[in-house]
Design a protein around this nucleic acid. Structure first.
Length: 303
DNA sequence: AACCCCCCCAACCGCTCGAAA
DNA sequence: GTTTCGAGCGGTTGGGGGGGT
């Protein structure tokens, strides 16, 4: 194996881009569209690595990029998402239209992480987004000890994988539709056994299906779920860190069930005009939902 | 004015993944 | 099944600018 570098490294410009280079790249992409980054520099007449061109376009030149100060609302969202997802910058950026993963990563590393760290000294399984909002809107605000404990991070570190389909039981989908805390918040054992039973019925009824979903539901669930025991379950299941495993067939991309609903056709995506987020990250979200429901991984794998 | 230090952020690097050959 | 390629992700680096002395 092995791969040739994306371009010969000799004689290429490095470092900051000049306005002339920006102009050339922008014009080229305007005419030919994105993609084929390896060949782009040669065709466009740029002395740059294709990777560098891609990065420059995605992080700086794209017309839909929102530049400027990050609003308090955006801060709140970043903090919430970071708490939920950890350093998954592309996922977090996917929730902030016009913001790039690089920008959010930088913003977190230079500002938010310090601010949050200063207000947190004990891990806790409880959550309080009121505290987070207070923090984002008034950085100098001092939180009480119990408030600090409530916002200690417990990110879900499942791996984000690219796949095209995801399985969610009809029960889960209905529960998410209705924000059914009674269903979602039941204790893990009770839920685990009943969930298994439900799924057996699903199989019998041939009612399993793949249903697209919106991560907004997760956030809503998370917010509504402040007082639930779910946080404890997350910790108990080792969803933080590698121990939780990689992928483990959590994506259903190989399934051929006729009941599958292909995410690509989803209209439930936050962006509306494309489905990048769901197409690339539903496996992570499935893991997230699974964790929220406190189900065992095996139960999902049976599907 | 000169120097130093720190912060910010654009850019780079190494790696992984899915798809195609 | 294996190899190669295109693309994307996340951690890190380093240049530049601003503030302090």
């Amino acid at each position: 194996m092995g791969r040739r570098p994306c371009c010969t490294m000799e004689g290429l410009n490095r470092g900051a881009w000049s306005s002339e280079e920006d102009k050339i790249l922008t014009n080229y992409i305007r005419i030919h569209g994105e993609g084929k980054w390896r060949d782009l520099p040669q065709k466009a007449g740029l002395k740059r690595c294709g990777k560098s061109c891609r990065l420059r376009w995605l992080n700086y030149l794209r017309p839909d990029i929102k530049r400027g100060n990050i609003s308090p609302d955006e801060e709140v969202l970043i903090i919430k998402l970071h708490r939920l997802l950890g350093n998954r910058w592309s996922l977090i950026a996917g929730r902030l239209p016009g913001r790039t993963d690089n920008e959010i990563k930088n913003y977190w590393n230079t500002k938010l992480s310090k601010r949050v760290r200063n207000h947190i000294f004990q891990s806790s399984t409880n959550r309080s987004y009121e505290c987070l909002e207070t923090l984002a809107k008034n950085p100098s605000a001092e939180l009480r000890a119990e408030e600090q404990a409530k916002i200690a991070p417990q990110p879900i570190r499942a791996r984000a994988t690219r796949c095209t389909k995801v399985f969610i039981s009809p029960q889960l989908h209905n529960a998410m539709d209705k924000k059914d805390m009674a269903f979602i918040g039941r204790d893990s054992n009770a839920h685990s056994s009943s969930a298994s039973k439900d799924r057996e019925n699903d199989v019998d009824d041939d009612a399993n299906c793949l249903i697209d979903f919106d991560i907004n539901d997760l956030l809503i669930l998370d917010v509504l779920n402040c007082d639930m025991q779910c946080g404890n379950e997350l910790g108990d299941q080792n969803v933080v860190g590698e121990e939780y495993g990689e992928d483990k067939n959590m994506h259903a991309s190989s399934s051929n069930s006729p009941d599958e609903a292909v995410i690509e056709n989803s209209t439930n995506d936050w962006r509306g005009d494309n489905n990048h987020f769901l197409q690339t990250h539903e496996a992570l979200e499935l893991k997230t939902i699974e964790s929220f429901l406190c189900c065992s991984e095996d139960e999902f794998e049976t599907h």
